[in-house]
Simulated assay, not measured.
Amino acid sequence: MSIRTIAILSALLWLAACVGPAGVAQSAPESSALVAGPPGIAGTVRDSRGEPAQGAVVYAYRSARAGLRGPADFAAPVDAEGRYFLDLVEGRYHLVARRRASGEDAGPPRPGDAWAPHPQNPLEVRPGFTTRADFRLLAITQPMIMKEGTLTSGDTGFSGVVRDARGRPVSGALVLAYRDRNFQRMPDHTAPATGEDGVFTLYLPQGGTYCLVVRTRTRGQPAAGELYAVLGEGAEACREARRGEIRDLGEIIVRPYGR
Rank of each mutant, 00 (worst) to 15 (best):
R69F: 03
R69H: 09
R69K: 02
G70K: 02
P71T: 04
A72Y: 00
A72G: 12
F74S: 02
A75S: 09
P77G: 04
G82E: 03
R83G: 09
R83D: 13
F85C: 08
D87P: 05
V89L: 04
E90F: 10
E90W: 11
R92G: 13
R92F: 01
V96Q: 13
R98Q: 14
R99Q: 09
A101M: 06
G103L: 06
G103I: 08
E104W: 12
A106Y: 08
G107T: 10
P109G: 08
G112A: 09
D113W: 07
A114T: 15
A114F: 06
A116G: 06
P117T: 13
P122V: 14
L123Q: 11
A133V: 12
A133P: 00
R136A: 03
R136M: 09
I140K: 15
Q142A: 06
M144I: 07
M144W: 04
M146K: 11
K147P: 08
G149T: 02
G149R: 15
L151P: 11
G154C: 10
D155E: 11
S159E: 10
V161E: 12
R168Q: 14
V170L: 06
S171V: 13
V175Y: 04
V175D: 06
L176F: 01
R179W: 03
R181Y: 01
N182S: 05
Q184N: 11
D188P: 12
A191I: 14
A193N: 08
D197S: 15
G198D: 08
V199G: 13
F200W: 01
Y203P: 04
L204S: 14
L204W: 00
G207T: 01
G208M: 01
Y210K: 13
C211P: 00
